[in-house]
Design a protein around this nucleic acid. Structure first.
Length: 574
RNA sequence: CGGGGCGUAGCGCAGUCUGGUAGCGCACCUGCCUUGGGCGCAGGGGGUCGGCAGUUCGAAUCUGCCCGCCCCGACCA
């Protein structure tokens, strides 16, 4: 393509509203423009790049025998009512009515529609297994769209769904997807990690997320370089930092102490001269309308996900101050688990074996010394604690890192949730109606591009992997007025096109600096400079990412460029 | 939904406190010049100052209401 004919509106300065790198660069490089909060126009460069991502996804999905569909984004409410998610999705679902007043919604995902298709057509185990997928637009009314293309209200997703007769079949489909996802992200040139994920309210049994480490991300991943352990913070387990001081092992009974005005763990710690690791914090939570106490070590944080799992609740919130007083007879700051019999008490496992700790007395401005779990109060043991910086791996004691990540893909064993709620059954070998077991698997297409920009950029702009860059190479005659350079560039352009190289020819009448800056900004992996050295038959091949330059003979340039691109193309080990 | 910030030319901003002819840089158009990292010179075009209402002789500026966008939090199958 000739740059002079293209619409690539690059900006010299960062638009004020963009904070994260990928947002800034995608705007500056003329890939995208914003239409509204969480709604973006994808211009020429973004579309070229996203189509390349989609093509890689398509090839790898096809390679595992998945069949491409294309389902409507506009859905009748009934399908979603059947699965129960019409209510569950709440305000996150865009809803509308047709001219007759019938309720419709915009699809957030397509388990329901896929299940509805399967239910209508699949009759026999002989038709299984099936893997169906699509690359299609999703709509989610996010409470807070943010970070450019990372959290938006309309986005493209590759979603696939597997249908099997038995769990062993689901295991196969899941594993096929895991490998396909690795191949996809490898080929897209990303650095990523597959982590254990929380299965959530979807009710599934196993789930992995594909994560790219970047500060722009919203998820936290706990991992160990030594052992390869990697899990979403929501699900991660660890060995906590040991208590700062040993417990008094004597058989003591609780003793009330006056702690006027000392409410937070830090205040109580300073006042009583007891380290926070020897204090218990007591949280009052209301889950599905019922109160619970959660007891954790003073320096630990409650994991909301783990608490939700432990209570198997749909939703929960911290108790209001009036409720705390009603349930426990004291205000936050003096709450404790001792002599609580009417409210379920959940104790974090990090407190197992601990003795003679400090806890609130359930009397304003008083705490108890010498409180021992299971002696002085009873409760159910659960892992409630969120992994923290400094923790170590639970089995090996290896150090753990906590890193911010963005989720680019998710694979999920659904089980029978949709087949049962929507009546998807087939006849098995014995002619008995059996529910089909399902899996669902997603890739956020725009997030792949964003993640690549986040991973690979410098002060001059983005530096995309050749496999997903909008062009593989850009030709830059240094002097635009020089007829010899123009002729050589035109010839090389034709040769590269003949070799099916994705080439952009910067034929604009601009100073070299502008062309170099633009080429760097939009992230084309290779640039060919045609300049002075052409007189001696040489041109320069510049690598965007390494900033290294090689002189190559113009006569063999097309073949050498094609070879350089081929060598730079990300490979897959999977 | 709670807290904070911002809406002035395509982009980045000043002007608003203290009301009085709407500005700067970049980008854009014309011509000349230049050509190895966002050149130079000259000339030029582009604005309902987010919207509505009010106060005033007079509102970008003061007041009220509304809208939009960004950030933090809540939320996030």
């Amino acid at each position: 393509m000739l740059w002079s004919r293209l619409f690539i509106p690059t900006l010299r300065e960062n638009p004020a509203e963009a904070e994260v790198i990928s947002h800034q660069l995608l705007l500056r490089a003329g890939y995208i423009r914003q239409l509204g909060a969480g709604i973006y126009n994808y211009l020429y460069l973004a579309q070229r790049s996203l189509l390349k991502v989609q093509q890689i996804v398509r090839e790898e999905m096809d390679a595992i025998g998945a069949q491409e569909f294309y389902l409507p984004g506009l859905n009748p409410a009934e399908v979603w009512q059947e699965s129960g998610r019409y209510d569950v999705m709440g305000d996150n679902m865009f809803r509308l009515k047709d001219r007759f007043g019938r309720p419709l919604c915009l699809g957030m995902t397509h388990e329901e529609v896929m299940t509805a298709i399967a239910r209508g057509e699949l009759r026999s185990y002989k038709q299984l297994p099936q893997i169906w997928y699509q690359i299609q637009t999703k709509f989610r009314d996010e409470p807070r769209p943010k970070s450019g293309l990372l959290r938006v209200r309309q986005f493209i997703m590759k979603d696939s769904y597997s249908f099997d007769l038995a769990p062993e079949g689901l295991d196969v489909a899941y594993e096929k997807h895991r490998i396909a996802y690795c191949r996809i992200f490898d080929r897209c040139g990303l650095e990523y990690v597959a982590v254990e994920a929380h299965s959530g309210a979807m009710g599934g049994s196993q789930s992995q997320e594909f994560m790219v480490a970047t500060n722009a991300g919203e998820d936290y991943v706990v991992s160990s370089k030594q052992t390869g352990y990697a899990a979403n913070l929501e699900k991660a387990v660890s060995r906590p930092v040991p208590p700062a001081t040993p417990d008094n092992e004597a058989a003591l009974t609780p003793e009330e102490v006056h702690t006027p005005g000392q409410k937070t763990i830090d205040e109580v710690s300073a006042f009583l001269k007891v380290h926070p690791t020897s204090i218990m914090k007591t949280l009052v939570l209301v889950a599905d309308g019922k109160p619970y106490l959660a007891v954790l070590r003073g320096d630990h944080q409650l994991s909301e996900t783990k608490f939700q799992s432990a209570t198997a609740c749909q939703e929960f919130r911290p108790a209001h101050p009036e409720e705390m007083r009603e349930f426990l007879g004291a205000d936050a700051g003096s709450l404790g688990p001792v002599r609580i019999t009417t409210i379920p008490v959940l104790i974090d496992e990090a407190l197992k074996g601990r003795k003679n700790l400090v806890a609130g007395a359930n009397r304003d401005d008083y705490h108890l010394l010498n409180v021992t779990p299971e002696e002085d109060f009873q409760g159910a043991w659960h892992d409630l604690r969120q992994v923290a910086e400094g923790d170590t791996e639970i089995d090996t004691g290896a150090p753990l890192d906590v890193r911010k990540c963005v989720e680019i893909g998710h694979i999920f064993k659904l089980g029978y949730k949709y087949s049962k709620s929507m009546g998807l059954n087939v006849l098995d070998h014995n002619g008995v109606e059996t529910p089909v077991i399902m899996g669902s698997y997603g890739i956020g297409i725009e997030r792949v591009l964003c993640a690549a920009v986040e991973l690979f950029s410098d002060s001059n702009g983005m530096s995309l992997p050749v496999s997903i860059a909008p062009f593989e190479v850009v030709l830059t005659p240094v002097k635009s007025a020089d007829a010899t350079l123009r002729e050589a560039a035109g010839k090389l352009y034709a040769e590269l096109k003949a070799l099916h190289v994705d080439v952009l020819y910067d034929d604009r009448d601009l100073s070299p600096g502008v062309k170099f800056k633009d080429a760097d900004l939009i992230g084309i992996p290779f640039r060919v400079n045609l300049g002075k050295k052409l007189a001696s038959g040489l041109i320069e091949l510049v690598n965007r990412r390494t900033k290294t330059s090689t002189d190559i003979p113009v006569a063999e340039a097309a073949a050498l460029i094609r070879q350089a691109i081929a060598e730079a193309r990300p490979t897959t080990a999977h």
